[in-house]
Simulated scan of single mutants.
Amino acid sequence: MPWSSSNRRAELPPDWSAIRARVLARDGHQCRGRMRDGSRCPTTSGLEVDHIGDRHDHTDLNLQTLCSWHHKAKTRSESLAARRRRPPDRRARPAESHPGLK
């Protein structure tokens, strides 16, 4: 996530570095993402701490360690689901029927 275009860092608690270190240690400094075969992702570098649910809940139970690939995949999936839940844009013009089909 590019922090330059986001205010997410400002939403984190002042002791975020301690929380992050605790979660990384709890997860054994390894991604908790799953591979296609169901095994745990072996990545141990470039790790990020992800909010499982509510992004304002910074409790250990709501945090997990993910590699950047699994974090991006999770974010992409959540973004797509949110867009699908959104009602269609009411400002959009209705589709016009083809003049030869009238």
Results as ranks from 00 to 15, higher is better:
Asp27Lys: 07
Pro99Ala: 04
Arg93Cys: 06
Glu11Asp: 07
Arg55Gly: 10
Pro14Glu: 08
Arg93Ile: 02
Arg55Pro: 10
Ser68Tyr: 01
Arg40Ile: 11
Thr59Ser: 15
Ala95Pro: 01
Ser39Cys: 03
Arg85Gly: 06
Leu63Ile: 01
Pro2Ser: 11
Ile52Val: 13
Arg90Ser: 15
Thr75Tyr: 08
Ser4Ile: 07
Asp54Pro: 04
Leu12Phe: 05
Pro13Gly: 03
Pro14Arg: 14
Ala82Gly: 10
Arg9Leu: 14
Pro14Leu: 08
Glu11Asn: 11
Asn7Arg: 01
Ile19Gln: 01
Asp15Tyr: 15
Ala92Val: 09
Thr65Asp: 06
Ala95Cys: 09
Arg76Pro: 05
Ser6Asn: 11
Ile52Met: 07
Leu24Glu: 00
Leu101Gln: 12
Trp69Gln: 04
Ala73Cys: 13
Arg84Tyr: 13
Thr75Phe: 05
Arg26Phe: 09
Glu78Ser: 13
Ser77Lys: 15
Pro14Lys: 14
Cys31Met: 09
His71Arg: 00
Ser17Cys: 02
Thr75Val: 11
Ala10Thr: 12
Gln30Arg: 00
Leu12His: 12
Arg76Thr: 06
Ala92Tyr: 09
Ala81Trp: 06
Ser6Lys: 03
Ser79Met: 14
Asp60Lys: 06
Arg86Thr: 13
Pro14Val: 11
Thr65Glu: 02
Asp50Gly: 04
Asp60Gly: 00
Pro2Val: 12
Gln30Gly: 01
Glu78Val: 03
His29Cys: 14
His58Pro: 00
Arg34Cys: 10
Leu80Ala: 14
Ala92Met: 15
His51Ala: 07
Asp37Trp: 05
Arg26His: 13
Pro87Trp: 05
Ser5His: 10
Arg84Ser: 15
Ser17Asp: 07
Glu11Gly: 04
Ala18His: 13
Lys74Thr: 07
Thr59Asp: 07
Arg22Lys: 12
Ile19Asn: 01
